[in-house]
Amino acid sequence: MLERILENRFAIVAVILFGVGLLNMMLRFNLLKKVIGFSIMDSAIFLLLASLGYIEGHTAPIVQEGSVNAALYINPIPSGLVLTGIVVSVSVTAFSLALIQRIYKRYGTIELDELLERAKKEED
């Protein structure tokens, strides 16, 4: 049992983090906390992705002086994906933060329930 937990430690941590992020994103009314929840969720996925490519005892795949021995290196593709994923996540976070800032300037609050109420009042 303990061995299995140790073996899958990355996956377990990733699942817990994903849950934390997801709940934050879904249940919080504060927009900023939602964004933080989203960031945690994405980080959890990146952890899982990076751990998939990791092979115990192998090093980063930096080829030196033409000696290519694939048995020495970890799988580089998931790391590349994590890099791309981080770029995507950063841009999305930047976009949502900019949006939240504008909402704050307009309404003076970033609580979603208050915002929805006010928007409804404006419409009537």
Binding site: L99, I100, I103, Y107, L116, A119
Partner: peptide, 10 residues
């Protein structure tokens, strides 16, 4: 408009 920003964030 305000309501559009809220719609966007949702």
């Amino acid at each position: 408009t305000g309501s559009n920003m809220i719609a966007t964030i949702r």
